[in-house]
């Protein structure tokens, strides 16, 4: 790599950067019991790694989830738990 090319980013760089490795303590567990499909967890996720449409059908991609816990905090039904990272 040439020094002049540093800082030049091609499209898709977010996909290449597997931020799941940043998780150190805990990960979200989608309980899928009381979910009302309000979509809040999907919208607040800074990585955009939560997917879902139906009630009790939401899940995240752990390859990108940084374990920030925002989804668990915003969930109005307490249907996402932060569990200890194994």
């Amino acid at each position: 790599m040439k020094a002049k090319d540093i800082g030049i980013a091609k499209p898709g760089s977010s996909k290449a950067n597997k931020t799941g490795s940043w998780r150190i303590e805990s990960r979200p567990k989608f309980l899928q019991k009381d979910c009302i499909a309000c979509n809040m967890c999907l919208l607040i996720c800074p990585e955009g790694c939560i997917t879902g449409k139906e009630k009790n059908g939401y899940i995240c991609d752990y390859a990108y989830c940084k374990g920030c816990g925002n989804c668990a905090v915003i969930c109005p039904k307490d249907d996402i738990d932060m569990i200890r990272e194994e």
Partner: peptide, 12 residues
């Protein structure tokens, strides 16, 4: 397409 002057972490 590309971005110039993007983020360079401490390794770059």
């Amino acid at each position: 397409p590309k971005t110039l002057g993007a983020f360079a972490d401490p390794s770059y």
